[in-house]
Nucleic acid binder design. Structure first.
Lengths: 338, 338
DNA sequence: CTAGCGTGTTGAACCGCTTCGACGATCCGG
DNA sequence: CCGGATCGTCGAAGCGGTTCAACACGCTAG
């Protein structure tokens, strides 16, 4: 491998000049720059990342901690990851992938100066990782909202607003008895904040719209979905509007409703909270509130980079939910006929 | 951040001694080791990754190039990734995540000495990345089989054997007209090798088992699945056994069969080629050939590490397929009644 | 008693790059 | 014609480790 000294020698300049050509931190005359660039080209020179990190205290790598296991919906994770990786490249950074359960990884990458910054997904209310990264010298942004952000930046969909939006949509359409089919019980038990925020928004809006709202936890399996649907239909038989906030369970919920003889889009209105493509790949195109996972990932990177550059203070950004009406929702019993 | 010199000073030894305590490459007496370890503990010392990489020419990072976009099934990708990341940790390595389309990333991480080795997923027959990594100084293992491995290591499920196994299973059960519902047309068009190997196995075994086999490409959408099922049922109405090698389409294929009044598990036998959990989360538990994505990821890391250590030659390993009988397959028309 | 050995430790060179202070050259205004 | 900017380039000092040759020490064997 050619080194910067090789380049300097074949270009007939000093190594610092080569360095300045590369970084642009000092003006270099056009002819000199050209000579250096030609040498780089000729030798196929690539700066050594380690040497660079050592000398500059910058690695151009960010860490992304993602839940590679069960629980959260896999396509959503992938979209976050894709968003983070592609946006990181726009900032000339690469991504080091850590798994959620590898808590010691935080220390490793942080203390070992392996990364310039961190992005962490799937934050829980009382997440043990939060104090760790809060103490790190690298800026961090959380995807999700912990109880106490401790000066860290956060991004997420505004699930509370999403809950309100969903109920408002259904109420406007004339539904008076609505329900949430939500996250698996274990997710709720962990006090994952998005689930709780969603429920809060739902209930708030239900109160002010004067509709009832029943909440069912729901395992993502076919059986879990069936159980939830059955439970709902027996304890709240007047339900005509359902918000499904569980992509994994969504197809099975729809299947169960069908089995029970309910036609989604006329007998029963369903609003899904999930990524666009999931909404579109169901048996019928779903009315849905988009979960813009890829965008959130990108915003996370934007925020972390901003903190890396200037001295932006930490902030938390909640993205406004957008509801797109498709074929799974229809007017309800209380709709003005006309 | 404490440096190795700080540790040496507070332990009252030289820096090289600290280094040897850390690496174990020279014997250190128990008392000295203890003093050093106490100092490390006390200062919260972490070796600087960049400095280490510079001095030792080892980064303890491997690159993983994964298709973060459409095409291949998302859960499968996640499982590969999970396997690679967790196994890499066993070797004290971290994972740098590259996207499939970022071909220049290969050069970057390779030439910049950012990683010790590479793992690449979703290899196509005539993959442009193969010559690039073949020229790199880092060992690489491919998940999938290119036309010409050029001395690179490869791992994959033995799809040809899987094809044979699936047909053999159906033929044994008395099916005489079988079909494949396979990858989306664009995947086939790219000559993705697993799809072609699967078809080859299928056809071989069909010939020797004396059954007919019809092949349908299949888009992963509900509509695509419906189209494929309809086409199959009209051009080969006698089909009683289907192999589905497309996890995304699987639920929709099953849905379409149901809509057409066919009961999977009696009227129609279906063998899925997909990860276990996908097979189990369909409307009924599917007879399936497991796609052990996580294992493959782990094996990939094992292989790449072996090459990093000793001077193992490159090899290609094809994992033997395992068929698990569940509820979606049943005896066919030619079965011995008894 | 000494030559020779193994064990444990050390000093110093080096890995490849960034960056700071300095310096020569060119250009300006006075 | 001179003093002071401005511009472009350079030399050298780190950055924080690893590793090699060398050495001090206590042993054993001769």
């Amino acid at each position: 491998m050619a080194t910067i000294d090789d380049v300097a020698r074949t270009a007939g300049v000093s190594t610092s000049t080569v360095s300045y050509v590369l970084s642009g931190k000092r003006p270099i005359s056009a002819p000199t720059r050209a000579r250096v660039e030609r040498a780089i080209e000729k030798l196929g020179y690539r700066p050594h990342a380690g040497a660079r990190a050592l000398a500059s205290a910058r690695t151009n790598v960010i860490a992304l901690m993602a839940p590679l296991r069960v629980g959260v919906s896999v396509p959503v994770i992938m979209q976050f990851v894709a968003g983070v990786v592609t946006r990181a490249r726009d900032f000339d950074h690469d991504v080091l992938l850590l798994t959620q359960d590898d808590v010691s990884g935080l220390d490793r990458v942080t203390g070992g100066s392996m990364v310039d910054a961190l992005v962490m997904m799937d934050i829980e209310a009382d997440d043990p990782r939060v104090p760790l990264v809060a103490a790190a010298k690298q800026p961090t942004v959380l995807i999700g909202l912990p109880q106490d952000p401790e000066g860290l930046s956060c991004v997420d969909l505004d699930f509370e607003a999403a809950g309100r939006l969903a109920v408002r949509h259904l109420a406007h359409a004339g539904h008076t008895d609505v329900a949430l089919i939500g996250s698996p019980p274990e997710v709720l038990r962990r006090h994952t904040s998005y689930a709780e925020r969603m429920m809060r928004g739902l209930r708030d809006q239900a109160r002010s719209s004067g509709v009832t709202v029943k909440v069912e936890a729901c395992d993502s399996s076919p059986a879990g979905a069936a159980t939830a649907v059955d439970a709902l239909l027996s304890t709240a038989p007047d339900t005509t509007g359902i918000v499904v906030h569980n992509e994994g369970a969504l197809p099975h919920v729809l299947a169960r409703l069908a089995e029970r003889g309910l036609v989604v889009g006329s007998d029963m209105s369903v609003v899904a909270v999930c990524p666009r493509d999931v909404a579109l790949s169901q048996r019928i195109p779903m009315t849905s509130i988009d979960l813009p996972a890829e965008d959130i990932g990108k915003v996370a990177v934007d925020m972390v980079m901003a903190r890396l550059e200037g001295e932006q203070p930490s902030e938390t950004r909640l993205l406004a939910p957008v509801l797109t009406e498709r074929d799974s929702s229809a007017p309800g019993p209380a709709a003005d006929v006309g």
